[in-house]
């Protein structure tokens, strides 16, 4: 019989101390970790739960700055009215992620730390230029989400380090949207895309575009952003943006879809996310 230890620290300090011990592994909702354990992909026997750590539990606003604790269940984030208004792409990504039961326990921190290329919240957070707060026994530091992922399943987190919060700045005049496709509704994304734009005088002044499940990590598409910025958000610009996607992604073939299919649909998703973001920014949405 295998034995499993399970600890439930209540403070960040305690969590960092227990989590730093040999063979320890943080667990939040466990919706990735427990599945990996059962299928033998993770041999962890020493779990440190983050669910009771007070410092990871809150959703806090300071003016337009939002701080989401790493261990807040996705359902709580999805139900937040202000988040839905200021960060609609994040709310849409959360609504697309798993099922009600999964969202009731799964966390934003878990989604990012698991570092699946298909993590649904990642493209939206990339488009919002989220920053990640990381703690270790020595203190905290902050990195941009675009620097956080280093490959499939890997991040800049060092052993014993914790993702404590996701930091976001609301851009009140922006429009943003998230799009994704799975084989069925309850599936990991075959491909996903998020877009954020600001429009002034029929000119795109700021654009952020990111995609998921089509590269080793969730990916910002800076070249697409450059095509948009300074241009009128019209058909020809969108077509150019759409056409630029293919060269930027490096999808693989897996059980969910072939690389070829991902190459066909990702530009479409990017274009549709942009269209939705533009119509929101220009007030057409209502």
């Amino acid at each position: 019989m295998t034995t499993l230890t399970y600890q439930r620290p209540t403070s960040l300090r305690e969590a960092l101390e227990t989590g730093g011990s040999d063979g320890a592994r943080f667990v939040s909702g466990g919706t990735d970790l427990m599945v990996q354990r059962r299928s033998g992909r993770s041999g962890t026997e020493n779990l440190v739960s983050l669910r009771r750590v007070e410092e990871l539990a809150g959703i806090d606003w300071k003016n337009d700055q939002l701080r989401i604790g790493a261990a807040v269940p996705l359902a709580g984030i999805g139900a937040d009215q202000r988040i839905a208004r200021d960060f609609p792409a994040l709310a849409q990504a959360i609504a697309a992620l798993g099922s009600v039961q999964i969202r009731n326990v799964a966390t934003l921190g878990g989604n990012l730390c698991n570092a699946s290329p298909a993590a649904d919240t990642a493209p939206a957070l990339l488009a919002y230029e989220a920053r990640i707060e990381i703690a270790n026994t020595g203190g905290t530091r902050t990195v941009g989400l675009d620097e956080f992922f280093t490959g499939p399943g890997s991040t800049v987190l060092q052993p014993g380090e914790l993702l404590t919060a996701i930091l976001l700045d609301a851009r009140q005049s922006a429009g943003s949207a998230f799009m994704r496709l799975g084989r069925v509704r309850m599936d990991l994304a075959i491909a996903s895309a998020a877009a954020l734009v600001e429009i002034e005088d029929n000119r795109c002044t700021h654009a952020r575009v990111a995609v998921g499940a089509v590269a080793p990590t969730p990916l910002r598409l800076s070249a697409v952003e450059e095509i948009l910025e300074g241009k009128a958000p019209d058909g020809p610009t969108l077509a150019k943006a759409q056409a630029a996607v293919d060269a930027l992604i490096s999808p693989i073939s897996d059980l969910r879809a072939s690389a070829r299919h991902r190459r066909r649909i990702t530009p479409v998703l990017v274009a549709r996310a942009l269209e939705a973001a533009i119509s929101m920014a220009t007030g057409d949405a209502q």
Binding site: V35, R183, V184, R185, M186, D187, L255, R256
Partner: peptide, 23 residues
């Protein structure tokens, strides 16, 4: 059910997709 050389590649509902209430 996808197989390769006689082995089942998707032995579970993660990659064997049934329609659910959403579909």
């Amino acid at each position: 059910v996808k197989t390769e050389g006689g082995r089942v590649l998707n032995p579970g509902f993660t990659d064997y997709k049934l329609p659910t209430a959403s579909e």
